[in-house]
Nucleic acid binder design. Structure first.
Lengths: 345, 345
DNA sequence: GTGAAAGCGCTAACAA
DNA sequence: TTGTTAGCGCTTTCAC
């Protein structure tokens, strides 16, 4: 901005009376520069307000850019993740940029391509819905960490929360309160090819196993719907219209639980006196006074930070063997769950 | 991925028996290529699965990347904006990438720099808190569109919603219901240098003017706080503890209104029988059954799309004169507002 | 420890 | 209309 033109590495070099190669080395903290020369170069950089040109760096070396694929900005859990990610990179030379991926495999694949085209140094993919084979192909091209898909891979690192355990926390909590007819709302995707590794599937499986462990095998009741307000609403309407409706509804996501609350509200039932409702993700909405939804908390910040750390290991140290990191969820009991009505206890 | 190495423009050129310049022209839909050659080049591109290298393109021409500065992923209004933006670019060669900017001027400036370093073709800045002079400096470097800051600039285009009108919608609505003691919760930033152009300031001003117009000048009551759940909660606690509390509270954002609801709930008051509450932004939370918050709707999707269109005009047509585009908000009345208690009417 | 020089993949002048 | 060529700003051999 000084003289119209932006300073380049050559400007810095001539100002410091060194070669461009030397400047480059200082920039990358590479070996082979004397402290004195370091000093001179740094001074010149400061004087000129020089900033390296990421696109040009990318032509030979790295772009110092990390791509983060994010499917749905409306999901209130993702900001936690993002914050964990950007906090982690804040102390480094790297910059995380988010790609709004949409919820279809096609749109997510498009963004992934766009990130590869831009020579990003690494990719963090949040709950991607693309087929596993495609994830592995991507990971062979560019260091990749996947958040929220279960199952390990030789090609990419994975960070997940233990959804089996999370579902068990809710079921055990409800069973301990005396509930028997506990229904579960599952997100059933139309997308094929991503069978057992998505969180929704694992949560449903965790629900089933926990029901069995509590001797409630006969009461297992999974309603396929979607993790959305309308999905939860529709599923709850269906459940409440039955001859013997459940005394507790466990929605696989808070956002769906909100829809359940709406349906319960419309049906004129009271929470938790007439029916208990639980969600998953412990979003800020769940914590709101009038809502006060029992939920399961995943430490999104920690998950994001861990994913970032794993990715940098791959990018910088060239670690090859893959890592699966599984975190433990915790139960957050609130006012939306209580003992079932006496007649049903 | 075929032979390990990624295909380059030279590979395409030799495959199609043309020059690299010809391939480049086809890529950019530039003049001077015969249909026959076009055909051959496109075929070669398809056969090789060639994709242009964005970083390399950026060295000479454009990067076909648009940077979107987004301050707070938790604000449920922003996803609308983002969707409008990415939908608009979906039909083009451009790819929008989001930079999580944080809420301080420093962090936002950092991301802005990072985007310029990466040779982005243009910038969309959502409700930036950096000083105006800095915005203009940025805009002189790179085509820029600012969303959500009032006041026109010669350097950048601006897309705003008419917050004066939006605040008036709420005040007129409440006044028509019979309210007189209508309080407003304003977001009061500690940041200096951005006085009258932020939405919160304009909304407060709109509230004042509308109160005057309704002959309620003596009742003007602005509580400085923050647009957050805790901010709304604290402000409402303060208001409710007064000898003559307001009969209606107009929070400048839904998220603050939620905090108000919590405080009202805790105080044992009923909504809307004892007190009316209104928000701003018409977020999905506001629409939820148990909440049903009267609010003001801005068409975020349209704002995002307009901002994108303006930016592309600048990037491609090199339009120089700046544009200010102001959209009109609409009132969304719900169950949280009603006539005041008889004694106060 | 230091610098000269050859690219990275593409675009834009210009020549043919 | 088509091809040749000189860079864009940086990193990376490879001499010195």
């Amino acid at each position: 901005m000084d003289s119209g033109r932006r300073a380049t590495i050559a400007d810095v070099a001539s100002r410091a009376n060194v070669s461009t190669a030397a400047v480059s080395k200082v920039l990358r903290n590479a070996y082979g520069v004397s402290p004195a020369m370091q000093e001179r170069v740094r001074a010149a950089i400061a004087e000129l307000g020089y900033r390296p040109h990421a696109a040009a760096r990318g032509m030979r070396g790295q772009t110092y850019t990390i791509g983060v694929l994010i499917p749905d900005l409306r999901n209130p859990f993702f900001p936690e993740l993002i914050e964990g990610i950007s906090d982690h990179f804040a102390g480094t030379q790297y910059q995380a940029l988010l790609g709004p991926g949409g919820s279809t495999p096609e749109s997510q694949a498009r963004i992934t391509e766009a990130m590869i085209d831009r020579r990003m140094d690494g990719l963090i993919m949040i709950a991607p819905v693309v087929p596993r084979a495609q994830l592995e192909a991507t990971a062979r091209t560019i260091p990749t960490v996947v958040i929220g898909r279960h199952g390990r891979s030789a090609e990419f690192d994975a960070v997940v929360d233990d959804d089996i355990e999370g579902a068990a926390l809710i079921v055990d909590h409800l069973a301990a309160l005396g509930h028997r007819r506990i229904a579960h709302i599952e997100h059933r995707d139309t997308t094929r090819g991503i069978p057992t590794t998505m969180p929704q599937t694992v949560r449903a499986e965790g629900y089933r196993r926990a029901m069995q462990r509590n001797d409630l095998t006969d009461e297992i009741d999974v309603v396929p719907s979607t993790y959305s307000e309308s999905g939860g609403y529709a599923a709850a309407r269906e459940l409440l219209s039955r001859p013997a409706p459940p005394t507790a509804i466990f929605a696989g996501a808070d956002v769906a639980a909100i829809g359940v609350l709406n349906a319960v509200y419309e049906a004129g039932l009271r929470i938790p006196q007439d029916i208990s409702v639980a969600g998953y993700d412990n979003t800020t909405v769940a914590a709101m006074g009038p809502i006060s939804l029992t939920s399961v908390d995943q430490d999104g910040h920690l998950m994001g930070a861990n994913a970032s750390r794993l990715l940098l290991e791959r990018v910088e140290d060239k670690r090859r063997r893959s890592v699966l990191m599984s975190l433990s969820p915790t139960l957050v009991p609130r006012r939306s769950t209580a003992a079932p009505p006496a007649a049903d206890g």
